[in-house]
């Protein structure tokens, strides 16, 4: 059993940052549309593969990010308008449907990209390491950390300072009432679904560069995202941030200090939090 050092702490924080990017999309969809989108992990993996392909063939990482976010947002559009529309209002059917889509996408990814492990090529300027707090640390992981902070800031501003954000928050509170005020809440839902999906795509590319992409990466990130959203409270951006930090750090602590109990270190505290706050740390009854 070893102690925790700065590098491990930074590893925890960068993992938390990636988790936040993925889980913020998950919580947006969960909070507003009341859909537990179990295909979110598959969207992450697809986003990663698309980013890998585009970044690899164009040599531009950021083009890969853009392509991935656009494609996955489009997949979100198809999923919501093409399939989920037929099971609206039926929670269990929605969950089962997204689970089915997750399996289909996973197999599709296996056909398209095979079972090998890939890593999204990172841009030249983010390669190598730099000194931070007296330790050598990969530049790319610092980039991920900053990106998570930037995504949080952008989402926070969008949700709290724009009209679309006000509509989304109002929709989380009382969708029927928003509808009765002349707003087509379906369009707001769809925009949110696509935004949430594109965040999974972003996470896929970003995560695919340091966690690598392989056929079961989707379910691993999905389980972590679920833990983040359950701990933080559904639909809460701050909850997703705090949940990500907790899960990211607990994961690192678990792996370093109690490797044989790594999962328990995350899900044990999660169960304890749920016992006292069934709606999560920042969740509200609706």
């Amino acid at each position: 059993m070893g102690g925790l050092n700065l590098i491990q702490l930074l590893n925890g924080l960068t993992f938390a940052s990636l988790l936040f990017i993925v889980a913020s999309g998950f919580t947006l969809i969960f909070g507003l549309l009341r859909i537990v989108n179990l295909a979110h992990g598959a969207l992450y993996l697809f986003g990663g593969y698309i980013g890998y392909t585009v970044a690899g063939s164009t040599g531009n990482f950021f083009l890969g990010v853009l392509a991935s976010m656009l494609c996955v947002a489009l997949m979100g559009l198809l999923l919501d308008e093409g399939l989920l529309r037929f099971v609206r209002g039926f929670d269990l059917r929605q969950v089962l449907l997204t689970l089915g889509v997750a399996f289909v996408l996973n197999d599709l990814a296996l056909v398209l990209w095979g079972g090998d492990t890939f890593s999204v090529p990172i841009p030249e300027m983010l390669r190598g390491a730099t000194t931070i707090g007296g330790v050598f640390y990969p530049k790319y992981r610092i980039f991920v950390l900053l990106l998570g902070v930037a995504v949080f800031a952008a989402l926070w501003l969008m949700l709290n300072r724009t009209r679309l954000g006000a509509l989304i928050r109002a929709g989380v509170d009382d969708a029927e009432m928003v509808e009765a005020m002349g707003i087509n809440i379906r369009r707001v839902f769809l925009a949110t679904f696509m935004l949430g999906a594109s965040l999974a795509g972003l996470g896929g590319v970003v995560g695919g560069a340091f966690l690598t992409l392989y056929p079961t990466a989707d379910s691993e990130i999905l389980v972590f995202s679920l833990a983040v959203v359950i701990i933080g409270g559904r639909g809460s951006l701050v909850g997703a941030a705090v949940g990500s930090l907790l899960v990211g750090l607990l994961n690192t602590i678990g792996q370093v200090m109690f490797p044989e109990l790594a999962y328990f270190v995350i899900f044990g505290p999660m169960a304890a939090i749920l016992a006292f706050r069934p709606l999560g740390l920042f969740g509200r009854a609706v």
Binding site: R163, L167, V172, D173
Partner: peptide, 20 residues
């Protein structure tokens, strides 16, 4: 103007008016 008001707990007074 619904029964029980049904305001949005997460919106400010101004936002209730400007969201439309």
């Amino acid at each position: 103007v619904p029964q029980g008001r049904r305001l949005f707990p997460s919106l400010t007074v101004t936002e209730h008016l400007t969201m439309i």
